[in-house]
Structures are given as C-alpha cells and as structure tokens.
Write a protein that binds this DNA or RNA. Sequence first.
DNA 1: TGTATTTTATTTGTCGACAAAAAATCGACG
DNA 2: CGTCGATTTTTTGTCGACAAATAAAATACA
Lengths: 234, 234
Amino acid sequence: MTDTDTNGLPERRRGSGVKMVYDLLRDEILDLVLPPGSPIDEAQLAERFKMSRTPIREALVRLAGEGLIDTLPNRSTMVSNIDFLNMHTYFDALVLMYRVTTRLAAEHHRAEDLQVIRAHQAAFAAAVEAQDALAMIATNAAFHSAIAEAGRNPYFTGLFKRLLDEGRRILRLYYQSYDDRLPRRFVDEHEAMIAVIAARDLGAADRLAKAHGEQIVDQIRKLFSRDRRLDIEL
Amino acid sequence: MTDTDTNGLPERRRGSGVKMVYDLLRDEILDLVLPPGSPIDEAQLAERFKMSRTPIREALVRLAGEGLIDTLPNRSTMVSNIDFLNMHTYFDALVLMYRVTTRLAAEHHRAEDLQVIRAHQAAFAAAVEAQDALAMIATNAAFHSAIAEAGRNPYFTGLFKRLLDEGRRILRLYYQSYDDRLPRRFVDEHEAMIAVIAARDLGAADRLAKAHGEQIVDQIRKLFSRDRRLDIEL
DNA sequence: TGTATTTTATTTGTCGACAAAAAATCGACG
DNA sequence: CGTCGATTTTTTGTCGACAAATAAAATACA
C-alpha cells in the first residue's frame, strides 16, 4: 500500500485536488457514466472526494467553461445535453478540422512526430483486432490528435481536441455497431494518411482527410437514421 | 443616485459579482490596459471590488480557461503573453475562419441576419469616417462576428470570436497606422462581402473572405517588419 | 565579501460557516 | 378536492480565517 493513509485515501498534495476532480468528472461525462442531464451536486462530490466544496467548485467552473456542464444561476448544475438537432454543425466542424490538421501535419511535421503518430496507429489497429470498441474510439482520437499536434497550430488543435472529445460522447452512444467490417477500412485509411503526411503531399493529405472524415460522418448518419429514425440534415 | 448605497458602491445582486469582475478584467486585458505580463493580485482585486477572494478567484479561473491569464501553481498569476514567434499560426486560423464563416453565412443566413450585419457595417463606416481607430477595431470585429453568427455553426463562431478577441490585443498595439487610406478599402470590401452573402454565392463569399483576410494579415505583417524589424514567417 | 542557511513575509489553496435564492412541503381557504 | 400562499428545506454564492508553499530578507559562515 503506497501513498495512502490508514483510511485508504490517497494523500493529496496541495493543489492537486481540483485537477483530480476535473479529470475524473470529465472522463465520467465523456464516457457517459454521467449521461447528459445528470444532476451535479457539489456537497455530494465534496463528501465523495473528502474535500471542501471550494476545489470542487473550481473544477466545475472549468468544466462549464468547456461546455461540458450547464449551470443555472442559483440553481442546479447538470451535465450538458448533446444537441442532436444541430448535429450537422458538429460534422461540418469535424471534417474541416480533419482536413486542416492533416494538411498542416504534412507541411510542418518532424521526424519524431511520425513515430508518435505511428505508435497511436498501432494501438488503434490492435484495438480493431481485439474488437474493443471503446479502445477503438480512444485510440482513434489519440491518432488524429497526434496528427493535429504535428501540424503545430494551437488554435486548430484546441478546437479539434474539443470536437474529438464531444465525439467520444456521440460515438459511445453507438459503439455497438463497430463490430462490422468498417474499422479495418479505417486502419487502411490511417496508413494512407501517414504515408502522404510523410511524403509532405499537402493536396493528397487534404483529400484523404476529407474522404476519411466524410466517411465517418456518413457512418454515424446511417446509425442515426437506422437506430433512431432521425434524419440529420447535412 | 440610483442603485448605489451610501458609500457610492453599486448594490450587487448575489451572483453578479463574478461576471462583473470577469467582464472588466477581460476588457482591461484585451484593451491592453493590463499589458501582457502584468501581475494579477487576488487580494488587491478583492479590495478594489469590495468583495471576498472567492468570486475573484472564480473569474480568474474562467479567464485562465480562455488562455487570457497564466497561473503558476502556488505562485503568481499574470496576463498571458502574446506569442509573436508563432504569430503565423494565428493568422492561418484567422484567415480560415474568415473564409468558413463567410461561406456559411452565404449558405444559411436569414433576412434578419443581413439587417444586423448591415448595421455593424454602418457603424464601421462611421468609425472610419471619424478616424477613430479604437472604434474601427471594435466595429470591425462586431461586423465579422455578426457574419459568423449568420453562419449558424457554434463551433466556428466560438473559435472565431476568440481569435477576434486575441486580434484586439494585437491590433491595439499598432492601431496608430490606421490613419492611412486602408480603412476605406475595408469598407468597400465589407460591402462586397454583404452583397455576395445576400446573393448566396458561396464561392464568391469564400474568395472575398480569403482576399480580405489575407490583406489584413499582410497589413499587420508590414506593420511588424516596419515598426519592430521582426520577420514574421508566413 | 560572497555564499549557504535559517527566518520572516507574502500569497495561494483549502476549509467550515453563514446568508441568499429557489424549490419543496405544508396548510389555509375556496 | 384543488389552488393559492406561507413556511420549511435544500442548495448555491460569499465570506473570513487558517495552513501550506514559495519568495524575500536576514543571519551565519567561509
């Protein structure tokens, strides 16, 4: 037993509490452990983490800043809803960021970036092989996130990462369908993207990213119209 | 004397304090009243606004979430620096958002949107006529912000508004040069943009926005190399 | 005189408590 | 039996105080 006191609770260093609460709550929201609409009770969290409401509050303010929770003034705060009606705006933004970040990666990447990207791609391929849908979602996001980092534009990577996070919530609703033959196609497309990035072919990077993104959007649209009979306008 | 007590201090309603501090600090940062690097002292702010440190702290957390201030753990927090070395990433993002939002505005705008846009354009023209540089910056940002809103994609408008805010800090450093013949050209270009948006000509909207954005970037680059002998890579 | 070490001072992070605001409960009255 | 109003309960926003962490100052020592 390391780093724990007699109560079995980890000894927290001053200042680490907010980050812990923030990270955990964030994960629980994105993994739908806390589904949209779930009420968030400060006092309850304070008791759960054995700390005062002050650091809890700070974590909540940060989550609200990212739009992951909604706070009604003087009243309850809850996990923000996924806006299915305006989903097309999400897809538009996602595809554009796929394109821009991949193109910039082809332009600005360094040798060490490719190693990181290839490592994430290997992890994604392993998740596909293992048919682990949750791992697919996570490693796929990490793969594209690494590409964005190689593009070296913090404004784009910032927006893109937020979109990928939001995507975690959407995909997790439908990850069941991931046990068909689509994931292997994604693996191949990822390989092709790595190749054009390495070759610094900006045009091809843009084209591949566009096709890749639109295919994912198409797949999600199909899921929606099949499972929910919702016609998402694109 | 309305809404004030005997001390001359406004009676604040519960919950309004944080927003007041946030808004004011934000403006002071963007207007360079608080230049980059300025130390932010919680206790000092608490005394200035006659409130406890708790709401001050919440405002600071939100500002930190937007990257307007940097907080060293357990130590001082200060106004974030403008990253001149990586300015090109800013320009890349700005021009792309100019294009995307203008194109989407041409696609999705409604009649009432055009009225708002034209009103902002009139205010911009008036600022140019009055040679009021600060008003030009503000009304120009409002004009493009209104176009973005008409595009109806919250992900793009969110990023774009943040970029325009950041631009306020950059432009305010150089607003002196605004007393040449460039602003009138901006007025004309704005008029052309409104026309193609109204005509729902997506391609022309994209082209005009690209030219408009790149011209602004070019202008700023010239200012930099002239005033600072700084060679900004683009 | 310069450097290492202790002491002091300043500032942040956290806490428990209180007051305001909204919701929930209860009770009066039709 | 239902509706409106008063009262209680719950939850949030704010406060003042304290403790940990760091910087600054003072002291000891070579």
